[in-house]
């Protein structure tokens, strides 16, 4: 590599690096088309396309969350998602920072690029982090064991208990089973957080997760 040859344009060697590097960058872009299951985002990150366009993976939202519900996504959740914030309702739930910050989400406030973006006077009921889904094979209520924890804790009254006809009286929870009212559930995760189906003694046989879990419903595009 003579200095003279280097001084004007790119040398052959660095041309190889340049072309190779740029090609790899374009190739990496196509990873966007690898199909991935949608994952729950903190409040304001529900539009997946604009979220992924803006998130720097700076982790500030995760660090600041007072409920510790935000965790970094893993490789298993999609290459593009690694290190982006996702919700783990086993760790916590989202109260929209009601307790810590008078209902003003700290995660949305700290996000530098507004990957998390809420309208100024948003209502928590309208921010759909996800929807709770009950696994009827694992749910202790559905197994007629008298559990109605999710019904009791849900802050949005999104769970109703169904009275089983001809079985017991109305106040006997042994004969009730829960249903999620989809329109009311915003995916805050408190039910999943408190559901006893996977906890110590009450483990349902064969269960690999809690009986009620929140699943992402993502909006694509604007």
């Amino acid at each position: 590599m003579g200095a003279a040859e280097e001084s004007s344009a790119l040398s052959r060697r660095s041309f190889a690096f340049a072309a190779g590097g740029a090609a790899v960058m374009l190739g990496l872009g196509t990873l966007k088309f690898v199909p991935t299951r949608p994952i729950c985002r903190p409040p304001g990150g529900q539009d997946e396309d604009s979220f992924l366009g803006a998130c720097l993976r700076c982790e500030r939202c995760r660090e600041i969350c007072p409920q510790n519900v935000i965790v970094p996504a893993h490789l298993e959740q999609g290459i593009l998602n690694v290190r982006t914030p996702t919700m783990n309702f086993k760790e916590g739930w989202c109260d929209f920072c009601e307790e810590a910050n008078a209902g003003i989400p700290l995660c949305e406030g700290v996000c530098p690029t507004k990957a998390l973006r809420l309208v100024p006077d948003f209502k928590p009921e309208e921010v759909v982090i996800g929807k709770a889904v009950i696994n009827r094979n694992w749910c202790l209520g559905w197994l007629l064991k008298g559990c109605k924890k999710c019904f009791e804790v849900c802050p949005y009254e999104a769970i109703e208990m169904e009275q089983l006809e001809g079985l017991g009286n109305y106040n006997n929870s042994d004969y009730q089973r829960p249903h999620v009212i989809e329109d009311k559930c915003n995916g805050c995760g408190l039910c999943e957080n408190r559901c006893p189906s996977m906890m110590n003694s009450s483990l349902t046989e064969g269960a690999t997760d809690r009986a009620i879990t929140v699943h992402a419903v993502t909006i694509q595009g604007d």
Partner: peptide
């Protein structure tokens, strides 16, 4: 101009096309 500038250009182009920080 060196190869890094071209890689930078490629990264920005790809980002603009695919819509995420590549």
């Amino acid at each position: 101009l060196d190869s890094r500038h071209v890689v930078l250009g490629g990264a920005l182009l790809s980002t603009a096309i695919f819509g995420f920080p590549v």
